[in-house]
Design a protein around this nucleic acid. Structure first.
Lengths: 78, 78
DNA sequence: CGTGTAAGGAATTCTGACACG
DNA sequence: CGTGTAAGGAATTCTGACACG
């Protein structure tokens, strides 16, 4: 289900990640939540699954820029 | 998906019902949202679909007590 | 009966920043 | 880099009640 309806608190509960981590991963363009009229992040179940993958990758020692899903470029040095 | 993760504001957007109506239907035992630690109602997509059916039935002139579902049986679709 | 609304409070989420390293 | 935290504000949701009919 790709409907963006889940607020960050529920995502925290479902993933075990902190809100800080979730927001940081958004900042680094690893996830793309929607926004409610009031500005609150809204996630889909797909986003939650994606975050679980990210969580595992981070535990494995990856860096956020290595997990970014870009359409074009490969990572470039500085 | 039967996971209770959607807050009432999103349900309002998805169904077009007012929060007052949604809460009233819960009061009359037509729906059974879960609660967050802070007391906020959490609905599933199934709840949302159910509410859409209720919405239609109410427009058709049914009363809430006629739409109440038992905890153990599932009402057949018409 | 079913729904609207104003009231006051509590829980949720937001952003930007400082900290550590 | 990735994450924790305190700060202040804004949006969200909650309950109980009064209203109409």
């Amino acid at each position: 289900m790709s409907k963006k309806v889940i607020s960050i608190g529920m995502v925290r509960e479902m993933t075990g990640l902190t809100e800080r981590q979730i927001r940081y991963y958004e900042d680094k363009r690893l996830i793309f939540p929607a926004r409610s009229p009031g500005g609150a992040r809204k996630f889909s179940f797909e986003d939650v699954e994606h975050l679980k993958e990210i969580q595992q990758k981070m535990k494995d020692g990856f860096h956020t820029f290595e997990l970014r899903k870009s359409c074009f470029s490969h990572q470039a040095r500085t």
